[in-house]
């Protein structure tokens, strides 16, 4: 799976969890850029992402993501 596909699938997960059809994600996107992405929804997003991609992150990875790009890198590294 290439990174653009990962980000596309992430976008669908975000739209579902945050319940907002207007979300667009890019490598540089952070929580500040997405209305409704806060510490509350962050946990739900992590659970949904793990379930969707069938993987499990560790705490250090989860706390280390600074933007969507780094999150996508983590996923790419796991499913490669």
């Amino acid at each position: 799976m290439d990174r653009s596909e990962i980000i596309h699938q992430l976008t669908n997960i975000f739209i579902d969890i945050i319940d907002n059809g207007d979300i667009s994600l890019y490598n540089e996107t952070t929580a500040n850029d997405v209305d409704g992405w806060d510490s509350l929804t962050h946990i739900q997003l992590v659970v949904a992402i793990e379930k969707h991609f069938k993987l499990r992150f560790n705490s250090k990875e989860i706390q280390g993501w600074k933007n969507i790009g780094e999150l996508a890198d983590s996923i790419a590294g796991r499913i490669a």
């Binding site: 946990i43 659970v47 793990e50 705490s59 706390q63």
Partner: peptide, 9 residues
């Protein structure tokens, strides 16, 4: 909050 919720996700 975040570490707790992540640990028990």
């Amino acid at each position: 909050y975040t570490p707790l919720a992540i640990a028990k996700r």
